[in-house]
Amino acid sequence: MESRRVYPSCMTQHASQHPEFLAPDTVVVAGGRPDRTHDAPVNPPVVLSSTFVGQGEVYEGDRAYGRYANPSWDPFEETLGQLEGSELPALVFASGLAAVSAALSLVPSGGVVVMPRHSYQGSLALSQDLADRGALTVRPVDIADTEAVKAALEGADALWLESPTNPMLEIAEMGVLAAAAHDAGALVIADNTFSTPLGQRPMNSGVDVVVHSVTKYLAGHSDVVLGAVVTSDPALRTRLLSYRSLRGAIAGPFEVWLALRGLRTLALRIERSQATAMELARKLQEHPRVEAVRYPGLPGDPGHERAAAQMDGFGSIIAITVRGGAEAADAVVEALQLWTPATSLGGVESLIERRRRHANEPASVPEHLLRLSVGIENAADLWADLDRALQKVQD
C-alpha cells in the first residue's frame, strides 16, 4: 500500500524547515528531536523534577509543577500528534485506561454513548461502571453493522469507535459512521491502539478524538504502561488537559522517554509483524485443528474490503477458534514453547491467550477463541510452534 505523507507541523525546528512532506515511517524517527546546536544531544533528555522555577504571576503555558507538564513529555506528545494528523500535540496519560477515562469525560453527565459490543475490555468495564452510577447510558452495537449503528445514534452524545475491534477484529465503516454521528450531534472518539497511526488515521475520517494505549505498539517492548489522547480541536484538548491535571493521571518522565525510544522502531516492527501475521493467518485457515480465522488481510474475511479501503496494512493481531472448545484452546496455549501465554499485545514478543479466561469478556466472544499478537520473531519458528501445539492437541 502507498505510504502517506504528513506535514511536519509539530517537529523540531530543523525538521520543519524541510518543505517536503514526510512519510510516517520517517516521522517516527525524526520527530521530537532536540534542536541541532553544537554539542546538543541527539536524543531528548529525561527531566526528573517535580517542580519548575517560577517568579511572579503564573501564566498559561508555564510548567510550574510536575502535575501540569514535564519537558520529557513534549517530544513524544509532539510526534504522536503529528503522526495522527493533528497540529496540536497529543496528551500522554498514566495508562491507556486513564486515556479512555479522559475521553469518556467529554460525554455530558447522563449522556448516551454508542459503543461497540466488542471493544477493549477496560473501555467496556469503565463505561459500564459509569452507567451503573448514572453518569451515562451505553448503547452497545455491532460496529460492523453500519445501518444498526446509524439507528443507534439518534439522541446520542458520543460514538465510540474501535476498528479493528478487540478481540473479534470487526471493521467499522469509519468515515460513514463519523459523518452520521456528527449529523446526529454526537462527538466521535476512536481507539486506534490496534492499527496505530501508521495503519490508519481516524481524524482523516472525521473522528474528533483518538485514544491510544501507548503500552502496546507505540512503546512496543512490554515494559511501560501509558496512554495518550489526540485531538485537533483546541477546546477539546483544553478540557482533556484539565482532566489530566485535576485528576493526576500523569505519566512518569522516564516511562515517556522509553515510549519515545520505542516509537523510533514502530515502522520496522509493524512491517515485520504484519508480514508474519499475514503468513500465519493464511496457514492457520488451512489447519485441520482450526475452526475459523479472523484477520482483515484475508480476502475471505468479512472486514477485508473495508480494511483494504481505509487502512494502510491489516495489523498484527489474529483471532482463531480451535476445534474442541475451550479445553482444546487452553491445551494449545499450554503446549506452546515460543509464544508467550499472556495478556496485552503489540510488543516485540508474540503473545497468545484465550480471551474468555477473563470473567468480564463479553459472552459473545467464543469460549474457544484465541487472540494472537504477532511479534517480530522468525515467522517459520512461530509457525512451527503453533503447528506443533495444535497437532499435539489433536493427538
Rank of each mutant, 00 (worst) to 15 (best):
D223K: 02
D223C: 05
V224D: 05
V225D: 02
V225N: 02
V225Q: 03
V225P: 00
V225C: 02
V225M: 02
V225H: 02
G227C: 10
G227A: 14
G227W: 04
A228M: 11
V229P: 03
V230E: 00
V230F: 00
S232I: 05
S232D: 08
D233S: 04
D233Q: 03
P234L: 13
P234K: 08
P234N: 11
P234E: 10
A235P: 00
A235K: 10
A235R: 08
A235L: 09
R237Y: 05
R239K: 15
L240R: 10
L240H: 08
L240E: 04
L241I: 00
L241D: 11
S242N: 09
Y243A: 01
S245A: 15
S245I: 15
G248C: 09
G248N: 13
A249D: 13
I250L: 10
I250C: 08
A251T: 07
G252H: 09
G252A: 10
G252C: 04
F254A: 15
E255I: 00
V256T: 03
L258R: 14
L258K: 14
L258D: 06
A259T: 04
R261C: 10
R261Y: 10
R261G: 12
G262E: 07
R264P: 11
L266F: 07
A267R: 05
A267S: 15
A267M: 09
R269M: 09
R269Y: 09
E271P: 00
E271G: 15
E271W: 11
R272N: 06
R272I: 13
S273C: 14
Q274K: 01
Q274W: 03
Q274G: 01
Q274F: 01
A275T: 14
T276D: 06
T276L: 06
M278H: 01
E279W: 05
E279N: 04
L280H: 14
L280I: 14
R282A: 01
K283M: 12
L284R: 10
Q285T: 13
E286C: 12
H287F: 11
H287C: 13
P288K: 12
P288Y: 11
V290A: 12
E291S: 13
V293P: 02
R294V: 05
R294P: 00
R294M: 13
Y295Q: 06
Y295E: 00
P296F: 00
P296H: 03
P296A: 01
G297E: 11
G297F: 12
G297H: 11
G297M: 11
P299T: 06
G300Y: 06
G300N: 10
G300A: 12
G300W: 06
G303N: 03
G303R: 07
H304F: 15
E305M: 07
E305R: 05
A307S: 15
A308K: 09
A308C: 00
A309T: 13
Q310Y: 04
Q310P: 14
M311P: 00
M311N: 14
D312Q: 08
F314Y: 13
G315E: 05
G315R: 03
I317E: 02
I318Y: 02
I318Q: 05
I318A: 08
A319L: 01
A319S: 15
A319P: 04
A319G: 14
I320G: 03
I320R: 04
V322S: 03
R323C: 12
G324R: 10
G325W: 13
A326M: 12
A326S: 08
A328C: 07
A328R: 12
A329R: 05
A329E: 04
D330I: 00
D330Y: 00
A331H: 01
V332D: 11
V332R: 09
